[in-house]
Each structure stands twice: as C-alpha cells, then as structure tokens.
Computed example of a mutant assay.
Amino acid sequence: MQAKFKKSYRFAIKTSLYITLYTTLLMSVFLYYLYEFKWYYVLGFSASIYIFSFFTIQFRVERFIYRRVKKIYDDLTLLESASLSKGPITTDMRTLTQEIDKFARDKKIEIETLKVREEYRKEFLGNVSHELKTPLFTVQGYVLTLLDGAMEDKNIRKKYLERASKGIERLGYIIQDLDMITKLEVGDLSLKMEEFNIVELVENVFDMLEMKATKKNITLTFDMDYVNPIMVKADRERIQQVLANLIVNSVKYGREKGTTEVSIENLIKNKVIVRVTDNGEGISKAHLPRLFERFYRVDKSGSRKEGGSGLGLSIVKHIIEAHNEKIYVESEYGVGSEFSFTLEKAK
C-alpha cells in the first residue's frame, strides 16, 4: 500500500522569506539611486519574489528531498518497522531524524535481546545434552560390560544392573521434570486447590528428609513453636514439592553441623510468607539473576557430584508462579541463603 505523504512547509516559508528580504533590499537600493523610489513597486516586487521562491522551493526542493526520504522509508519498511509505517511520510528533517533515531535505538535493543537469548539457548542446549549424556553413557557402559562377559559373574551382574538402574532413574527424573516445567509454562498442569495446614506440611517434609540431613549433621527446625495451625489455600502436593526442593538444596549445600530453618509469617491481610533459611555455602550476587533458569549451575563441578536434575529451582519458580504468587532469594557467599515464597491464606 502506498504510504501517505505529509507535506512540510516550514523549510519553504523560511527560505523564501530570506530570499525575499535579500532581493527586496537590493531592489530598494537600486530604485533609490537610479530611479524614482515607490513603496508599491517594492511591495509588489517583494510579493512576487516571495510567491515565486515559495513555490519553487516547495515543489522543486521538496521533490528532491521526497525522493530520498521515500527511499529511506521504503528501506525501513523492508525491516518491518511498524512505528514508521503507521504515520504519513514527512519531509521535515527534524521529525524524520527523530523517527530514525528512535527506530535505531529500538532495533539495537531488539538485537541485543536476541543475542542474550541466543546465548541462553546455546547454554541450555549444552546443559540438556550434558545432563542426558552422563547417565546415558553410564548405563551404556555397564550394559556393554555385562554383554562382554561380566554377566557370568552373579555378583558383578547384580551390582552393574543396580547401577544401570540408578542411571535410568536419573534419566526418568530429568524427563519428568522437563515435562512438568513445560506443562507449567503452557498452563496444561492443573492445580488442585485445597485448604491445608502449612505447618503440618513442613513437618512432613522434615520427616521425609530427616535421614538425608542426618548424614551431614544438619538440623531441620522451625524458627519457633507453632502451636496453632496456619491454614493456606494452594495445591498441597505441589507446595510439598516446593518445600522439598528448597530444603534438599539447603541440605545439599549446607555446612556440616549446620541448620536449615523454616519460618512462616503473616505478610499482609490475606498472605503468608514461608522462608527457608540456611547457614551453608551461600551464593554470590552474580549468580542470583539466573538462579531459577533450567539447568543453571552455580558450582559447575560441585553440583554434578551432588547429583539431581538441575531443574529443582526452575520447577519451584514455575509452581509458585502458577499459584500467582512470588518467590524471592537472598544470599551472601560464605554466610548462607534464604528462599521465601508467598501463599494465600485460607478464609
């Protein structure tokens, strides 16, 4: 569709005025010295010069500028610039310059954003490949060893099959976690909202993870005695998964003889905030913005030894956001970390 052309008269008006003033001054001097000076001659001459200059500049110079401006707009249209195609084309240089500058800034931001996303995409694919490749090669190694003759030894056969089974379990966990995150992102995973006592749920998670914490002499505790129940409205199973992931991380990266503490506080009239605090390794500020990304590792080597799918915090974030709630993290390297999230109170 042909772009609408918006005329600008500012340049022609000012330029014609300058030409008229100059030629009128010359004409006045010429008439004063050589001929009889008449004001109506001067006025008539000025008017004719102004009109002639205006139309010449407006239509000739404007045509010259328009062809070049039109080419700029056509080139930008090829780049699908919605901001420039909405309005009519103008030959006003200041307006055009402002539009081009804005277009350039927007495109620069867009390109930088795409570059960042491309880096994240490459890193994500590399992490997925690594996470799947490690247990897969482990299973393959044990199976090939058995096929090469180790199957005849019952003790080795049982040990290798058990190790291969663990590798397959890890692959299953990774695939299940990826599937859950995808469903949460597209809204396919429905939440079963119910009212329950969050204090009781935390106690259940403590019981479930007690043996894991005991191995590192880490104490799982509340910040105080909660005598009365605190009722919230959420998906009980998913919130249990959130608490389990956060507490497992605090134990995994906690110090020997350390503490993992859970507190539940009233935030506003209809909200509570649940905090999971530890005195473990802590996380440097540089890692905090990307902490909830899939497969993002703070310690590339240590986290591998600890195992896990690398999707725990990403799942936590998606579950909390699926409840239309917020999750926060505060951490200081060498001091400890605190993860907190909000929940709706039961009425």
Results as ranks from 00 to 15, higher is better:
Q241R: 10
L31W: 09
F292K: 02
I13P: 04
K285F: 02
Q98D: 10
E195T: 13
T95N: 07
T90Y: 03
S284K: 12
V139W: 03
K102R: 14
E185P: 04
V232A: 03
E237P: 04
S303C: 02
D92N: 15
I315A: 05
A47T: 15
I156A: 13
K122M: 11
K107E: 13
K300H: 07
L31G: 00
E325P: 01
Y22W: 08
G149H: 01
A286S: 12
D188F: 11
V143G: 02
T145P: 00
S46I: 02
D235I: 05
V139Q: 06
E281G: 12
Q140N: 09
K166R: 11
A82N: 11
Q240V: 06
V227Q: 12
R170W: 00
L147Q: 11
R238Q: 12
Y226D: 06
P135S: 03
K158R: 14
V242P: 13
N197M: 00
F55L: 14
V186N: 13
R68L: 05
Y333R: 11
K6M: 10
T342H: 04
V276Y: 06
Y173F: 11
L144T: 08
I247G: 12
D153G: 05
H130L: 15
R275W: 04
L191K: 15
T97W: 08
I168L: 15
G258S: 00
V139H: 02
F339I: 01
E123V: 05
L96A: 04
K71M: 08
G282R: 05
I89N: 00
S263P: 06
I320Y: 03
I156T: 15
H323S: 02
L311G: 07
E332N: 13
F339L: 00
T113Q: 13
K257H: 15
V248Q: 14
I111F: 11
G141M: 10
Q241W: 04
E112K: 10
L144A: 06
L125A: 07
I247K: 14
T342K: 04
V42P: 00
R105C: 06
A234Q: 06
G167R: 02
M151D: 13
G167H: 02
L171G: 12
R304A: 09
A213V: 08
V272N: 10
I239D: 06
F206Q: 04
I319D: 01
H318S: 11
K166S: 14
T134D: 05
L189T: 04
N279H: 00
F30I: 05
I65S: 01
K252F: 05
L26M: 10
L191G: 07
V251L: 11
K108N: 12
F124S: 06
F37R: 07
D188I: 08
L25M: 08
P289E: 03
A47V: 14
E112M: 05
V128T: 13
